[in-house]
Design a protein around this nucleic acid. Structure first.
Lengths: 231, 231
DNA sequence: GCAACATTTTTGCCCGGGCAACATTTGCCG
DNA sequence: CGGCAAATGTTGCCCGGGCAAAAATGTTGC
């Protein structure tokens, strides 16, 4: 299969960024990636199993689901084209903590981890870049999780919300921003009840700390917010 | 400085495991690691700064401290000889979320990340092994964090305790095990109040679920414990 | 425009567990 | 051994926020 049409997309992934066309040519020839199309609802990866491939989503939309101890499953992440999955997993011998499911019809490409970690002699610089990207990708996922833990260990809901708001504002680079999360989704991320989240956001508005409308947030008083985290 | 005496130790680290003496010889020659001795209380790594070196503890004991938003700092991990630090950090451009402090007089060795990720031509197989170890090390840290999150999102304290007990038992491979944690440390890991933890453990003993004595735990009824997680 | 549904807000109830204060045990050192 | 500090256990109080149910608001298709 000709992957050329996807090169611009691949270059935007954290694993293959900075790669020139000719580099991708050589690398993909060497890797002989498997490509597979999925129907909506099909599983790309099943929780509890190992995998030795790094998946890259070429088309469609996929969701990572975590099986809760009580049997149900909750959505963790959602990814579009360019999304990576199995990257942390493939280099370890752990079983996958998540299942990955096609949310719409999707197309995915798989790079064998063995080939990534075991450069063949020819691919000098390119391959080193790839390895560096791999480490960077995994590290970044680690830090994202770490920030999540940071949030979760805050005892009061107010604190968690403030921390989250500040984080989002910092990421957006401005005091007003929108997030692609429903209230329910945000509640889950913050590990609280949806109604409790509404209540608290309401209170914070009345106190003049923030303004919110659906997925949009506006921080009115950064200073006070910051202080609210510290207690 | 002659690092030979530390080879057996180095071989036990997740980064340098499986390395023969001659491989270590060549690698360390190539890496020219810096070695530094620290007095009790000195900082090996300061939160908020970047680092481009992977640290390996050769002697002593160190603690990773996280600065809480309110200015105080809490101990996260404690490591003895063979402990690795800065490993996740060095490949990313993040600032360190933790400080590392010498808990006793300590000796540490530092490998430049640049050299790890950029193999010089001579070191074939050995270096690939090193890269694989690096990825594995980081991945494992990721999964450890992930399990922590798993714990933290449980709403009831009872659930968190049960999940933790089952995890520990699984890791130990038997229903009786000891952990190197004080009650306060465990409470912090489970993100709850120390007295609340005592209370709950007491209850669970009275209910015949477990037996505990200081750092030792014995699971009496795995089945019931497992069921307690699912509600 | 209206009916059916999804999403969010609001509110009252109530309990898990945080907090503080004290009792007890263990370990350490002079 | 006695005294002191750290670790653990115990208990009463009280409030944050989970839960459930209902109201308000937004969304979609006909």
């Amino acid at each position: 299969m000709d992957l050329r049409p996807y090169y611009p997309l691949l270059r935007q992934t954290s694993l293959l960024r900075l790669m020139r066309d000719d580099e991708l040519d050589r690398m993909l020839t060497c890797f002989a990636p498997r490509v597979r199309r999925y129907q909506k609802g099909e599983l790309l990866l099943l929780a509890g199993y190992e995998t030795k491939e790094v998946g890259i989503l070429l088309e469609g939309k996929i969701t990572a689901l975590k099986n809760t101890p009580d049997g149900a499953s909750v959505a963790i992440t959602e990814m579009g084209p360019g999304g990576l999955f199995g990257d942390v997993l493939s280099g370890s011998s752990e079983k996958s903590p998540v299942s990955v499911m096609a949310q719409t019809e999707s197309l995915a490409m798989y790079l064998p981890y063995e080939k990534i970690i075991h450069p063949c002699a020819k691919l000098h610089e390119t391959h080193l870049q790839l390895l560096q990207n791999l480490v960077l990708t995994i590290s970044n996922k680690y830090f994202a999780l770490d920030r999540r833990v940071e949030l979760l260990i805050c005892k009061s809901l107010r604190t968690r919300i403030c921390l989250w708001l500040l984080e989002q504002a910092a990421e957006a680079g401005q005091a007003t921003f929108a997030v692609p999360l429903t209230r329910a989704g945000l509640a889950e991320y913050l590990n609280c009840d949806r109604s409790a989240l509404s209540r608290e956001l309401g209170r914070m508005q009345r106190e003049g700390l923030i303004e919110t409308f659906r997925g949009s947030f506006k921080i009115l008083d950064t200073e006070r917010l910051r202080r609210a985290c510290q207690e």
